[in-house]
Every structure is written in structure tokens, then in C-alpha cells.
Amino acid sequence: MFEAQMAQAALLKQIIESIRELITEATFEVSGTGMMLQAMDSSHVSLVALNLRSDGFQLFRADRPFSMGMNLNHMAKMLKCAGKDDTLTMRADEANDLVTFLFESPGNERLAEFELKLMDITSENLGIPDAEYSATVSMPSAEFQRIVKDLGSIGDTVEITVTKDDVRFAASGDIGNATIKCRQLLDTEKPEDRTLIEMVEPVNLTFALRYLINFSKATSLAPSVTIKLSTEMPVVVEYKLSDIGYVRFYLAPKIED
């Protein structure tokens, strides 16, 4: 038996909306520690890792580890039916291949029950090493989204360079070139407005912009985003979900042969 209750159905809806274009099918692994999902996109260039800790739920019960394979577009269809302030309860048991989503209005006057068919998904899990990164940049998530969208109109790839003074995003294409330079900014009223650059050694990496633009669909989930880079390693783009976990996106770099 698995049962979990979230104060805001809208949170899970937003999470699924932010990843469903990248991964259409995925298996949620449920255990006493929470709900986790790891999946590669169809081209096997990027990876999504979602972690929702059990202590971030209002109620969480998982008698034993349990896998729930879901089509995320179908899941999104159902979650869209939740009211803005509805609570969400998820229920599933191993006896039937269904997960139930219960949407309850704040005054308990409306209770909607949606049952989603579970599916068997063959996927391979990758072991992500706990690496030290050469550079870590935290910046407002809206700023990162603007940068990747703006550069996406100029070129297909972005070259990200981190030095101790700034982080540069550069793109070039048929119509010309663009460089956006962000300096460290610590003296802000709100902590989420800061741009923080932690550099062990300078890095310079090239990535396909369309994936980064896709990752930035998660912007509404967190006011700030953390970007971790090491030479010739996948970049990590992390959105922290307050009090419950994170969504991390990994993207393999483009490397000269």
C-alpha cells in the first residue's frame, strides 16, 4: 500500500509539466524515504532526477518499495483537473495496476477521484557519481530562463565559461553572435535575487540550447537555479523545491573529437 498527501496538488502538476516534454514515460520509485524518478530523454543526451522526500508530504506511507510506471502526459491530463488550492492524495497498491489521485477542495465540499493506469516501463537507471564540481553558479531562475531563450534565438549551442569574476553565455549562428555576461551579485534585498559564483577552477563547456530551454520550464518551481559545471562532464541544473526535494536536470556536453 502506498499513500501520500500533498498540501498543494498544483505542486505536482507544475513538476510534471516541467519534465513531461523531455520524458514522456517514467517510473516513480516509492519507498520509505519518498518518491524518486530518474529518466533519460529519448535521445539519451539528458537525464531528469526528481526527489520528493517523505517528510515533505503531509502524510506518507509506503509499506514496501513500489514502482509506478506512468505516462507523464496522461498524468498531466489528470493533474490539470485539480483545483488551484486543492490538496492531493495519491494511493496505489500492488494488487491493481492503478494509481488514484484524489483532489480535495479547501472546504472539503468537492472531492474528485481520478484513476490512472500504471504501465510497465523498461528503463535503465544510471549511477550519478557524487562529484565535486569545478564551478557552481546560483542565479535567479527567471534570469537563467531569459538567457537560454534569448540565446536560443541566435544559435543552437551555448558556450558557458566560468571565471572567478563572472559567468558568460555565448552563442553564434547565421545572423550573428551574442554573449551574456553575469557578474557575481551578493548585495541584494532578497537572497533569491543573488548571483553567486563559486569557482575551484575555470571551466568552459558547450551545450545544446534546446535542452537547457526545456529545463527552464521548471522556472516556476524555484526562485533560483543552481548550475554545476566541470570540464568534459554533464552540467547539472538544479531547482530546489522548498521543504520537499529537488528536480535536477543533467545534460551531456558537446566535446571536440
Binding site: 533519460m40 539519451h44 543526451v45 539528458s46 537525464l47 535503465e124 537507471n125 544510471l126 549511477g127 550519478i128 557519481p129 549551442t157 558547450t206 545544446a208 562532464m233 554533464p234 543533467y250 545534460l251 551531456a252 556536453p253 558537446k254 566535446i255 571536440e256 573529437d257
Partner: peptide
């Protein structure tokens, strides 16, 4: 031109 790598070439299969 730099070539796109696959993600599994960096992270080991489990």
C-alpha cells in the same frame, strides 16, 4: 564541430 555525447557515457549503468 564539437560532437554531442550521450549521457550514459558519463554515468555508469546500474
Amino acid at each position: 564541430q564539437p560532437q554531442q555525447r550521450g549521457i550514459s557515457s558519463f554515468f555508469g549503468r546500474q
